[in-house]
Computed example of a mutant assay.
Amino acid sequence: MWWVIVALILGVAGLQAWIRLAPSHPEDWHVAPRTAEAVDMPNGVQRAVPAGNVPLERIDRIIRATPRTETLAGSPRAGFITYVTRSRVWGFPDYTTVTVQDGQLVIFARARFGRSDLGVNERRVERWLADFRLGG
């Protein structure tokens, strides 16, 4: 019976290691949104708001201030940035791409693992957009 417990512990540890250590290749995740409109998905969300003359540096500052978030590829100067934000306990990676298309600030956020992100990306993106609108 003890071997079942050991196998279970090793299985959970292996899963945790895969989630935390799986490589994030920019060529897989640093992709432009297909459209500049709002889209709801089971494992993510896309939002678009008028960009005006506001530089991408402003949304970049807001996003990089989010805990457990780092830049995967791109830059505000390039006009196209992808970030990785990891969940607190398990370290699940969510990928968010930000760009300006057709005068719209487009934020495309999606989970890497699972069929549903339980609304995590939508809540995060809406918080970022609220800060952006307030001049964050």
Rank of each mutant, 00 (worst) to 15 (best):
M41K: 10
G52K: 05
E70L: 04
T35E: 15
A38D: 15
R68T: 13
W90R: 08
T66K: 02
M41C: 03
A36F: 06
A36V: 06
M41A: 12
R86A: 04
R68S: 12
A48D: 06
F80S: 12
E70Q: 12
V39P: 07
R77N: 14
R64D: 10
P33R: 07
I59Q: 03
I59E: 01
W90T: 13
T66P: 02
I59W: 06
V89F: 15
V45L: 04
L72S: 03
V45H: 08
R61F: 00
G74M: 06
G74F: 05
V84H: 02
D40Y: 11
N53Q: 14
F92M: 06
T71F: 00
G52T: 03
M41G: 07
I59T: 07
F92D: 10
A51V: 00
R68Q: 13
D40T: 14
V39A: 12
Q46C: 02
T82A: 04
P67H: 13
A65W: 07
N53K: 11
E57H: 14
A36E: 07
G74E: 09
V39Y: 08
A65Y: 03
S87R: 07
T69V: 04
G79I: 07
L56P: 14
A38M: 11
D60K: 00
T71W: 04
L56I: 04
G44H: 03
Y83A: 04
E57L: 12
A48T: 03
R64H: 10
R68G: 10
Y83Q: 01
G52M: 01
L56R: 07
D60G: 00
N43Q: 07
R77S: 14
T85E: 13
D40F: 12
R77Y: 11
E70R: 11
P93V: 01
A36D: 13
R88E: 15
V89S: 15
R58W: 04
T71M: 08
W90Q: 11
A51W: 00
V84A: 04
E37F: 05
L56C: 11
A51E: 00
A36W: 06
R64W: 05
D94L: 02
R61I: 00
I63C: 01
I81A: 06
Y83T: 01
R86Y: 09
D40E: 15
W90V: 14
Q46L: 01
T66G: 04
A51N: 06
A51Q: 06
R88H: 15
R64L: 14
V89P: 14
D40S: 15
E57M: 09
A73P: 02
G44I: 01
S75N: 09
E37G: 13
P33H: 10
R61C: 00
F92Y: 13
Y83S: 03
R34G: 15
Y83C: 01
R61M: 01
S75A: 08
T71G: 03
P76V: 07
T66W: 02
D94Y: 04
R68Y: 12
M41E: 10
R64S: 13
V84Y: 03
